Simulated scan of single mutants.
Amino acid sequence: MFVRIVKMHFQESHIETFLNNFNKVKEKIRNFEGNQFLELYQDKQNPCIFFTYSYWETEENLETYRNSVLFKKVWEETKILFSDKPEAWSVDKVISLP
């Protein structure tokens, strides 16, 4: 399992649109094969910055998602709302405390 972190910076006028869109697809993303966890965070200092954290069984699962019709539709609707280039990291969880 590994964690995918995506940082997105939105135009302030598009935050509500993004949240509405995310709420419509969050269950589909979470239930995509290989996805084990999905959360959305909003920065406390800058409300235009959001992060998604998703856990994936394998890198192949993430790549299958990234090549899916679902992802292409979500990304098409999301990227036009950005005010800056998104950043993404794939990381291995080293320590987790319950």
Rank of each mutant, 00 (worst) to 15 (best):
T58H: 08
E59A: 15
D43I: 00
M1V: 14
N35R: 05
E87G: 11
W75P: 00
F51M: 10
I80K: 14
R66N: 10
Q36T: 12
I29G: 04
V6A: 14
E16N: 09
S54N: 09
L19T: 07
N61H: 13
E33I: 09
Q11C: 07
K85L: 07
A88I: 14
H9R: 08
K79T: 06
Q36S: 13
E77P: 08
S13G: 08
F22M: 09
P98F: 06
L81Y: 03
P86N: 08
V25L: 13
E77Y: 08
F18H: 03
I5D: 02
P86G: 05
G34P: 08
D84F: 07
E60V: 12
E57F: 03
N61L: 00
I5W: 02
K28S: 13
I15F: 03
N31Q: 08
E39M: 15
R4W: 00
F82P: 04
K85S: 02
H14W: 00
S13W: 00
D43Q: 03
F71S: 03
M8W: 00
Y53P: 00
T78S: 14
N46S: 12
V25F: 11
V74E: 02
K26W: 02
E16P: 02
I80N: 05
K26C: 04
V3T: 15
Q36W: 04
L70D: 05
F71E: 06
E77M: 12
I15Y: 04
K44Y: 11
E16S: 12
E33C: 09
W89F: 12
D84A: 15
M8K: 07
F32M: 10
T17F: 04
L38M: 05
P86E: 15
Q42A: 13
K73T: 10
L62G: 00
T58I: 11
K26A: 12
F18L: 09
G34E: 08
W56S: 06
T64H: 06
E76S: 14
F18R: 10
I49M: 11
K44W: 09
L40Y: 01
F71Y: 15
S13P: 01
I5A: 05
